[in-house]
Each structure stands twice: as C-alpha cells, then as structure tokens.
Design a protein around this nucleic acid. Structure first.
Lengths: 97, 97
DNA sequence: ACAATAAGTCAGAAAAACATGACTACCTGA
DNA sequence: TCAGGTAGTCATGTTTTTCTGACTTATTGT
C-alpha cells in the first residue's frame, strides 16, 4: 500500500508531472501524435523518457494508443475522453496568475 | 537561460509539484499553517522538505508568511490572493477523472 | 537557570527521475 | 539485399529530489 491519498487533486497533478508530459500533452491537443515525431520536435528529449511518458499517459487514461493500419503502419496516440476533459482546467490555469 | 516556456500551464503545474506541496496547500485551505504542526500532521515528511516546500510556495506567491506577535510568538503561512485563485481550478480537477 | 518548543540550516546519504548508447524487431522502398 | 524509418527495450550512468541527523537561535514555561 502506497496511497491513502488524502489529497484528491494530487493524483491528477501527478498525471502531468514530469519533464516532458506537459509538452507531450500540449502537442496532443493539435491531433494524434507519434513516438518518433515527438522525439524530433521536442528538442532535448530522448527515446527513453518519451517512451515512459507515453506509457504513463496511456496508463493514466489520458491518451489512447492505437495502431494505424496504413502505408507506413505506425502507432498513434490521441487524447482520450478523459484527456479532453482536462482541457478546460488547463485553460483556466493559463488565464490566471 | 533555462526556460523558453512553450507550454503555458507548465509553470503553474510546477508550482504544486513535489512530494509535499499538494498536501501542504490542501491543509492551508483550512486556515493558516505552521511549520511544526505540518511536520506533525503530514506523516512521512521531514523538516528539510517541509521547509523547502514552504519557502518555494512563498516565493511563488501562493502563501504569505507572517510572524504572529502573540503568546508563543510564531510564524504563520496563509493562502495569498494568488493561492486562493487556484482553488476553483483544483476543485474542477477533483470533480473530473 | 534549565528544559522545551518553534523554526529553521547544513552536510551528506539514499532514492527517484532522467539521459545515453547499444541493441531488437518489423516493415518498406530502391 | 540493404539502407532507412518506426517503435521501442535494456543496462548503465548522471542529475535532481528527497531524507536523515546534527546543529543553531530565539523564546517561553517552571
């Protein structure tokens, strides 16, 4: 046992904690994202960290992972319902402070 | 230079990042808080971390620090205006997921 | 005067997060 | 068949965060 989470927002804050998750989430707002293109567009990042971040974002249910059966046959991550539900919260965060 | 913050919510997420800040913030919602009582009520915490968290929360302008010139003469931290402005955002976070 | 409480600081150790480079496995175009 | 892209994993090393215990300064209760 690790939790007994007395703070309800804590888990949700953790969803986007970490060095790259906020940026990844942000890019995902504009449409489905892919491992290798994230790696290229997020400079300073690295395979391992992006892989872990994507895995965790998926585990937390913010992103949906799915294999695209097309030409190059690749994997796409896109905002889940839960992920989209975070958008207004983040918008609110932006307009304050 | 370290920033070039391309993600607008990122800085604000960082305000409450760290192992103890969410809990401290939460306790502060119920009224002014003090170093030593936090130490007692947040189990698993330690002096150093609480001290650092309080300092940072104050630097970020979420908490106001002030010396109370009363009987035991102590220091109190209470939610600042900016701190209070975060409340609705956190409430929104709670009701989703 | 003495012990306790309050609010810390500091150095060092331990743990967690992050980065690097090598490697896999599969598919595709030339 | 061979090079290159895509999507990773793995072991290892570095960096950042967090924890521990010793120490400090000022105030208070007895």
């Amino acid at each position: 046992m690790e939790s007994e989470n007395s703070c309800p927002a804590e888990g949700l804050l953790k969803m986007l904690s970490g060095k790259w998750k906020p940026q990844i989430f942000r890019i995902a707002l504009d449409g489905p994202i892919r491992f290798s293109s994230l790696l290229r567009q997020i400079e300073g990042s690295n395979k391992q960290s992006i892989a872990v971040a994507l895995r965790e974002l998926e585990e937390q249910g913010l992103l949906d992972k799915n294999v695209v059966q097309l030409k190059p046959l690749h994997i796409e991550y896109s905002l889940s319902e839960k992920g989209r539900s975070l958008i207004p919260v983040l918008r609110q965060l932006e307009n304050l402070s």
